[in-house]
């Protein structure tokens, strides 16, 4: 009688572990794909018509522009001067076709965006894109 009780308690654990391990492996595999540091505080403007980007150029330099107009690259705050230095160095190393992605908050005043655009323009890099949130998936 005592033994039967113990067996009954043990049974569901093995299948539970199977499921839990399966979930863990799934999350480990899918989590390691995303390597970019994304500035979560930025709320992009909505684009209703343009399809979402499937694959972006791995050389892309992403410049985040906050609501208050401050710029950062991978959460590192950038003064216009520092930005200029980085972009010039990029052009010298990778040529002027390195894509630049401006992730500007939708509420940012255009004056602040244009300041960053001016710096990018001066550096000689010409492939500039503005990021927007694509509707749907």
């Amino acid at each position: 009688m005592k033994r039967r009780n113990q067996e009954e308690m043990q049974t569901p654990i093995a299948s539970l572990i199977d499921v839990v391990f399966l979930l863990i492996i799934f999350f480990v595999v899918t989590a390691s794909v995303e390597k970019d540091i994304i500035d979560e505080s930025i709320m992009l403007a909505q684009a209703k018509h343009v399809p979402p980007v499937e694959q972006k150029d791995p050389r892309t330099i992403t410049i985040n522009i906050e609501v208050d107009g401050s710029a950062n690259i991978a959460l590192q705050p950038m003064s216009p001067k520092a930005l200029q230095n980085i972009l010039t160095a990029t052009r010298e190393k990778g040529g002027n076709s390195v894509p630049i992605l401006l992730r500007s908050d939708g509420r940012t005043i255009y004056r602040d965006v244009s300041k960053v655009m001016d710096v990018v323009g001066k550096s000689g890099l010409y492939r500039v894109s503005l990021a927007a949130e694509a509707e749907g998936k």
Binding site: E34, A131, G136
Partner: peptide
């Protein structure tokens, strides 16, 4: 785990 952000990139030409 976070939602896959679906971003659209709008290419623009800057004044040279």
């Amino acid at each position: 785990q976070k939602d896959e952000v679906s971003e659209a990139h709008l290419a623009v030409n800057l004044p040279t």
